[in-house]
C-alpha cells in the first residue's frame, strides 16, 4: 500500500479556467475542494441529462408495468378530453354566442322601401346601437324562397306576406339593457314589433355553462387520478431504492439531487401517457367517424367529428407531463420529509 500522500489535484495545470482554485494551494492534508459556479452549472446540466436517460432505461427494463402505468394515465386523460371535444363540436364551448341580445324590428308592411330606410337611419341614431341591417320585404322573400325551396307556393301569392325587418345589434351585452332598448325601439313609429330572441340563446348559454362545469369537474377528478397513479408508482420506485436514497443523502446529496431521477420517471410516465391518450383519441375518432358521416349526410349536413388539433395535442401532452412531474414530486417529497433529522 502506498504511503505517499496524494497530491492535491487543485494544483493541476490542466484546468486554467478555474482561477478560484489557485488560491486554495495545497494546505497539507484534508481540504475540501472548491467548485466554481460555472462548473457547478455544467455538473447540474450533466446530472439532468444522465438522470433523464437513466430513468428511461429503468422504465424500459420493465416494459409491461411501464406500459400499464402509462395506459392508466392515458385512460384518465382520454375521458375528459373526449368530453371536451364533444362539447366543442356542439359549439357549446364556443364563445361566439355573443349575439345573445340581437333583436329584430318588424316594420309595418304598408311602408315603402324608402320609408323603411328612414326608420333604419332613425334606429341607427339611437344610443347603444352597434349595427343595424335592413332586410327589405323583397330581400326577405327571396332568402325565404331560397332557403325553403318553396318558390312555387309563394309565387302563387299575390302580395309579399313578409314585412321588412331591421336586425339590430346592441352595443351592450347586458340582457336587461337589451330588453329596455327593445322596448324603446318598439315605440318608434312604423315599427310594429321589436323582438328580442334571447330566450333560447339564454338556455343554450346555460347549457354550455353546465357542459363547461361538467368537463371541469371531470378534468379535476381525472387529473387527481393521474396524480395518484403516478404518485403511487413513484412511491414504489422510491421504496425499492430506499437504501440508495439513504446513502446519497448521507454523503451530502441535496433533496433536489435525490428527487431528480424520480421526477424524470414521472415526466416520462406523463409524457408516455399523454401520447397514448392522443393515440386513443385518434382511434376513437376514426372508429366513430363512419357512422357519424352517414348520420350527418342523412340530414344533408357535412358535419364531422372535430379532431383534437395541434394546439389541443400540445395542451394534452403538457398537462399529462406536468401531472406526472407533480405526482412524482409529491411522492418523493413525502419520503424525504420522513428521513429529515429530528
Amino acid at each position: 500500500m502506498s504511503q505517499k500522500p496524494r497530491r492535491n489535484p487543485q494544483q493541476d495545470t490542466e484546468k486554467p479556467h478555474r482561477p478560484s482554485q489557485g488560491t486554495e494551494k495545497s494546505r497539507r492534508g484534508a481540504r475540501s475542494h472548491q467548485i466554481t459556479f460555472e462548473s457547478r452549472t455544467r455538473a447540474w446540466r450533466r446530472h439532468h441529462g444522465q438522470m433523464a436517460v437513466d430513468s428511461l432505461y429503468r422504465l424500459r427494463r420493465r416494459p409491461l408495468s411501464t406500459l400499464m402505468t402509462m395506459l392508466a394515465i392515458a385512460i384518465a386523460m382520454v375521458l375528459p378530453a373526449s368530453l371536451w371535444l364533444a362539447l366543442g363540436s356542439a359549439q357549446l364551448l364556443d364563445s361566439n354566442l355573443d349575439d345573445t341580445a340581437r333583436m329584430t324590428l318588424y316594420l309595418d308592411p304598408a311602408l315603402s322601401e324608402s320609408q323603411a330606410m328612414d326608420i333604419t337611419d332613425q334606429v341607427r341614431g339611437e344610443s347603444d346601437i352597434a349595427s343595424t341591417e335592413l332586410i327589405t320585404a323583397a330581400a326577405g322573400l327571396e332568402s325565404f324562397q331560397q332557403r325553403l325551396g318553396m318558390s312555387d307556393a309563394l309565387a302563387m301569392m299575390e302580395d309579399n306576406p313578409l314585412p321588412a325587418t331591421i336586425l339590430v345589434q346592441p352595443r351592450s351585452r347586458d340582457p336587461d339593457a337589451a330588453q329596455a332598448l327593445a322596448e324603446r325601439l318598439g315605440q318608434i313609429e312604423g315599427v310594429t314589433d321589436a323582438r328580442l330572441d334571447m330566450a333560447w340563446l339564454e338556455r343554450l348559454r346555460q347549457l354550455s355553462e353546465l357542459g363547461r362545469r361538467v368537463v371541469l369537474a371531470f378534468g379535476v377528478l381525472f387529473a387527481l387520478g393521474v396524480l395518484l397513479v403516478v404518485g403511487n408508482t413513484i412511491r414504489l420506485a422510491v421504496e425499492s431504492r430506499r437504501q440508495e436514497i439513504e446513502v446519497v443523502t448521507l454523503i451530502g446529496a441535496t433533496h433536489a439531487f435525490v428527487r431528480r431521477p424520480f421526477l424524470y420517471v414521472g415526466v416520462w410516465y406523463g409524457l408516455g401517457g399523454g401520447i397514448l391518450a392522443l393515440l386513443l383519441l385518434t382511434l376513437g375518432r376514426r372508429w366513430l367517424s363512419a357512422p357519424i358521416d352517414m348520420l350527418a349526410s342523412g340530414f344533408g349536413s357535412h358535419f364531422s367529428l372535430p379532431g383534437i388539433g395541434l394546439g389541443g395535442s400540445a395542451l394534452l401532452l403538457i398537462c399529462s407531463t406536468m401531472l406526472g412531474l407533480v405526482g412524482a414530486w409529491l411522492a418523493v417529497s413525502r419520503h424525504l420529509a420522513e428521513i429529515s433529522p429530528r
Binding site: 500500500m1 462548473s39 455538473a43 450533466r46 446519497v248 451530502g252
Partner: peptide, 26 residues
C-alpha cells in the same frame, strides 16, 4: 465516485480522484 458526482466534479476530475483513492486502499 458517488460523492464526487453529488458535488458536481467533472468526469475527468472524478476519475483521477477515484483512481487515487482506490490506489491508496490497494
Amino acid at each position: 465516485a458517488l460523492p464526487l458526482v453529488i458535488q458536481g466534479a467533472t468526469p475527468q476530475d472524478a476519475r483521477r480522484r477515484v483512481h487515487a483513492a482506490l490506489d491508496k486502499i490497494g
